[in-house]
Design a binder for these strands. Sequence first.
DNA 1: GTTCAAAAATGAACGCGTTCAATAAAGGCG
DNA 2: CGCCTTTATTGAACGCGTTCATTTTTGAAC
Lengths: 232, 232
Amino acid sequence: MVERDTREHARREPASDDATAAPRGRPGRREKNKEDKLRRIKDVARELFVSKGFDDTTIRQIATRADVGLGTVFIYAATKRDLLFLIANEGLDEVASTAAASVDPEAALIDNLLGVFGPHYAFFARQPELSRLVLREMAFYDSGAQAGSFQKTREALIELLGTIVRHAAERREIATDEAPQFVGWTIFCIYQVELRRWLSDGTIDLESGLDRLRRALMLLIRGLGSGSGTTR
Amino acid sequence: MVERDTREHARREPASDDATAAPRGRPGRREKNKEDKLRRIKDVARELFVSKGFDDTTIRQIATRADVGLGTVFIYAATKRDLLFLIANEGLDEVASTAAASVDPEAALIDNLLGVFGPHYAFFARQPELSRLVLREMAFYDSGAQAGSFQKTREALIELLGTIVRHAAERREIATDEAPQFVGWTIFCIYQVELRRWLSDGTIDLESGLDRLRRALMLLIRGLGSGSGTTR
DNA sequence: GTTCAAAAATGAACGCGTTCAATAAAGGCG
DNA sequence: CGCCTTTATTGAACGCGTTCATTTTTGAAC
């Protein structure tokens, strides 16, 4: 309990009122407001999750390195899983927005789809370890505030896919009885499992991953009825 | 280790002539060989997982009710998750075999696919709680003997789907550039996520579940190019 | 500056899954 | 049977995620 005071604890200065005596960490723990703590917890957690893995990182380690109490971590994340989503949600929302903005109602269906999935793949490729963890923990996880946010983003994606399909139908690029929403869902199914497979097999190559996804999506668009894409 | 003999110990007595003065559970433990223990552990675990849920069931409870030591459970299942797969694999192999046997090279593609997926859906519907647990724990789980067996079964299914597609291609029901294996994989993607969705939404109705799966698969077979299924 | 109620932070304590050194049982041999 | 080797079984011990009664900090009112 004493030997871990080698941490950066040097913040207990009362600071008095002399101007020069405290160039580093000035007042005590006061300046560390909630945002500061959240920031520190997130940063430490991300670093440890990536470097040591999710299971081998303990919340005690995170708390110590973030210079907060053990219980404090649970104020910001209901569970360890939720802590993972807290990190994963950073950037993912932005990716989703970017993807949504890139949709062009006049563009070809496959281009719009890859315009949406491309940024997602790139995002996951940027932090493959974390992504694998997220996709591993994602399935069926529905408790915890951050997990909720994660699922909201996912549902928005499905709806976006439906919208893209609707555009293609309105332009008469495609014509199907099924509701655009349902087609969007089916596309999402393919995306989900393909993404998981891609992240699972060792080398995460963005180009080949997206290429395989394109092949699968083209299969759905063209159907199995005719070969070569050109209707022979 | 004596006071928990309030269990249902009424197992077979070893031998009649040995009715010595040791009525307190001593001789009973001898006849319990490995198979017996495995059987008891499985049965108890299944019952508790279904009745109380996976997370609320403790291995200590399982060990006590199965009348084995705590550590003994870990001889038969490397982890708690593996214990779940130990149970799930019972019957699933059989379902997979049944499904494989039902394939008719001359039958329509969609019929063969539903002939394979139907028994699977029925199996999952038979024990919905357990199925949800399995699908929750399944993603990315690759350590543990039972999980390995589970994934083998899964890969066999994907290959079976490829074979079904190949049959359809050989009969000229379909014609596509893509390798049958890849088409089978894409079908598997749809099946996976659809199955998960079906098990997630409260009421698990077999017929409506399979109907929705059929719609999604027909989408893939027909493609998005033409409406109504009948080519105009 | 003092007071005080509300909010935030904390770490001891709890029950869990998992490990493993110790123990018991089984089996082979003379 | 006794003796020894091998195998199976066990539960105390460990470190973990999580809880929550307690303590500390905060900021408004005086």
